[in-house]
Amino acid sequence: MDVIQLIVSGLANGCVYGLIALGFVLIYKATEAVNFAQGDFMMLGAFVCLGFTNADYLGLSFWLAVPLSIIIMGAFGYLFNWGVLRHMFGQSQVSIVILTIAVGFILRFAAGTIWSHEPVSLETPFAGEYLNFGGLVMGIDEIAIIIVTVVLTIGLYFFFSGTKLGVAMQAASQNQLAAYYMGIPVKRVQSLVWGLSGAIAAVAGILFASKGAIEPASGLLGIKAFAAAAIGGFGSLPGALVGGLIVGLIEPLAARFAPDSLSGIARIAPYAILLAVLVVRPGGLFSQTQKKKV
């Protein structure tokens, strides 16, 4: 029974990783850039919501704070692309990698200065409540995480393949010049993608903070989400979720079944799997890369 309990809580964790991974797969899919600060966006979204909700700060209603923080983070993502990244249009990918890493440092510093470095928990209306399925105990927060993640992934999948804007985003990524010729405002589309990914980061952050505690260093969780995205195959939305679930499941199971002498194995397990996947199947499980013919 306790193994099933572990699996359920692992699934909920994995969904959060999947959500963060979703955020940068989205950006990668639409702009070919990798946002190494996505984990910090998640952390910032959690802190914004926390600043609205918690009694120590503004003490607003949770249901008002959630849409507010999603909107704020969406605007943050949009403005970040509009104000900073757009000026780097046409520069190499390496510079964007460095830039987002640097932004992550600054966000962690800012969040620590504004909200303290102590781990805090988000005060949700459903905190501590749980359902009991014949011995299997599931917190409401865990159920919420799983449902929200699955709905978001499916929604985004159809958004990308079905809607006009989604197709425009794919086009902007596949060939910028050709997209311009087709009348797609590439820069605005890219800003919109960043906004969308900021909003998703806020959702991930809120879910994460309602389940456990959030601190500025939680932004480094994004690196686990990277592992998730790469395992799933960068650029694939369902792959991001599957990768997140794999990482989420491996951690508690490795901690449970590893012998005592190898207790550290749980910490390196996600990255070891990432390296293994990259070595064995470099494109990830849902590979989308192919070699360019010259």
Binding site: Q93, V97, I223, G264, L274, L275, P282
Partner: peptide
């Protein structure tokens, strides 16, 4: 360690080396 990744886009190398940097201490 990284030679399989070198065949892919540069982002994968950044990722693989980042993973190596994280697990070094462990």
């Amino acid at each position: 360690i990284v030679s399989p990744v070198l065949r892919l886009h540069g982002v994968y190398l950044a990722l693989a080396t980042l993973a190596m940097a994280i697990i070094t201490g462990d």
